[in-house]
Nucleic acid binder design. Structure first.
Lengths: 218, 218
DNA sequence: CCTTCCGTTAGGCTC
DNA sequence: GAGCCTAGCGGAAGG
């Protein structure tokens, strides 16, 4: 097996599973690991050559220019299948779901919190996940993270706060809504005045489920 | 198909390919796309249930706790294979290769550049890819990136420069060695005095190949 | 154990 | 079309 394109790789002889799909994608699997050892995404052109008891399979594509070549010296099994699959795939508990859950039930970050905008553009660059106001009329900037928040996340949030302060003349509060904060980030969090709000993807998923079942009644 | 764990997903009926590997990893593929629709990484426990002309396959794991369940209503083909594969996998043109190429042929970043250390630890946190000296005796900090350098990369490099300056008392030059720089990062790059040096993974790979073939003669 | 960094990251969405 | 961000990211290496 040899791949060349964005990078280049080689793999010696061994038992493999090669899957070629009708959309022009290719997978080469080893007998272990959930990830393909090599692959090509859809849109490949295929080529087959036979010589000296060897079968050479090639899959090439442009944009980016790359190719995968597999040499077979022994073939144990070949299957050709005509598959049909129109089903819809739905994923839940993503970071986007976390944002939607906060919009639908703002009290999970703080009692009395009221969202004003989502995806508010900031002066410099980037977007604020949720922008709103607390019970006392202070502006609040909320950044959601699916995993433990890093020091980098905290700094970015603090940059947003500064840019809002420049624009509004008032300093907003800053919430980091995440399952946890990395230990190494707690110090900078306190220093920059960012407040931690424990919110998990699973919790948000439950909130959205409840919301959906209520929506069905209205 | 239903997955639940770090997230949750559902997929309706359709023709699929399920691969179960002996290390306890699972792949569920649709007839299109190079990526699995669903998967479990190695170390799963399997369970099979049959009821009402349906076959239920379950793969579960702990750490993280997650599970995948697949219901079959029709089975077109089943194969059981004993595969053996001890081959070594080698990848080239990685970011590590870029660093090694600069060490082996420093002139690609600048004529007269001489590396002193690689992976030099910085005061605060992190490492410098390559640290060296230019033809005029100035210190040089080189950061390598496989893809277009981002504003974040530039800032990080500038932090290293500051930490070196504190330590050495002299301000080093800063090179970002990458195929390109994101447009949004060019301004901050100029402002922080970081210099762009065009270096690509492929170019570095060629340098290392040449080096290896020369080494074989010595 | 926690954290950081790299990947042929892929894929989606916006400007 | 290019830039930018998220991901069930996974996995490895280092502290």
């Amino acid at each position: 097996m040899a791949y060349e394109g964005r990078a280049a790789s080689k793999l010696g002889k061994g038992d493999r599973i090669l899957i070629v799909k009708s959309d022009g994608s290719v997978l080469l699997h080893r007998p272990f690991g959930y990830e393909a050892a090599n692959w090509q995404s859809s849109g490949c052109r295929f080529e087959i050559d036979q010589s000296n008891d060897e079968l050479l399979f090639k899959a090439t594509r442009s944009k980016p220019v790359e190719g995968l070549a597999v040499t077979f010296t022994k073939i144990f099994e070949v299957s050709v299948l005509e598959l049909s699959d129109e089903a819809e795939f739905v994923m839940h508990a993503t970071e986007e779901d976390m944002k939607r859950a906060i919009l639908s039930q703002p009290s999970i970050v703080e009692e009395g919190f009221r969202p004003i905008e989502d995806e508010r553009p900031t002066g410099r660059s980037g977007f604020i996940d949720v922008f709103g106001m607390d019970a006392n009329g202070n502006f609040v900037v909320v950044e959601t993270k699916r995993k433990a928040a890093t020091a980098e996340d905290i700094k970015q949030l603090s940059d947003y706060v500064n840019s809002i302060q420049e624009e509004m003349g008032r300093r907003p509060r800053a919430f980091i809504a995440a399952p946890s904060v990395q230990r190494s980030a707690t110090q900078i969090m306190r220093r920059l005045g960012v407040e931690f709000r424990c919110v998990t993807p699973q919790q948000c998923r439950r909130i959205l489920q409840r919301k959906n079942s209520l929506d069905r009644f209205s």
